[in-house]
Amino acid sequence: MTRYRSTDLVALALLGAGFVAILLAPTDGLQGVLQRLMYAHVPAAWLAYLAFALTLIASIGWLRTRHDRWDHLAVGAVEVGVFFTGLALVLGSVWGKPVWGVWWTWDARLVTTALLFLVYSGYLALRRGIDDPRVRADRAAVLGIVAFVQVPIVHFSVVWWRTLHQPPTVLRPGDPTMDHTMLAVLLLNVVAYSAVFVTLLRRRMDLARGERALEQGRLAPDAPVAGDAVVAPLPEGGERG
């Protein structure tokens, strides 16, 4: 059953407003309409950064307190973050073909972003491989902390090394090198995509809580799962202690 929260509707409304703003924004003098892809590409990349920063915080929180909610936040943020990393890669590729002339090139920004995608996909795979929830959360938290080192590398890759990808326009010292109407449209879309991110993340955390409850039912067969009226079946050849 799906219940809609008021934040879902706010996110949808913002996304709609952002889309209308994209259509109304002034056309870039050099790239033409292709530049409008940026209004989705940049928010996607920003949310990847945000998601993995949340995972870092949640992983530290888990290791310090061992409260389940930190682990739920960590896994939820990674899953949503991997989605937005993938979205940034795909949109960048679609933009790169007509503007640069290639879908892909081995420059530092593209390669580090692809690695970011793969390492956090690995985080999700790691969690699948460990049955004990506590061991799983511990190991995932270590990876969630260590993997974050990539985020500043991805962001500064265009400054530290020579790349085909352009350097930052907004997140840079000084005035953004962009028309201010275009900048306003971009910021509106950053807010809209962030709202979508929040609703996706909350959904995913609900799911993590449900999964955890299910797991506890399975891993502790002695506990009354569905109330005292129902008795969990005995494990094969096992005895109730």
């Binding site: 870039d28 050099l30 530049q35 352009q166 326009t169």
Partner: peptide, 8 residues
């Protein structure tokens, strides 16, 4: 090599 500037 597109630069980081966007203007109408």
């Amino acid at each position: 090599k597109h630069d980081e500037e966007y203007y109408p």
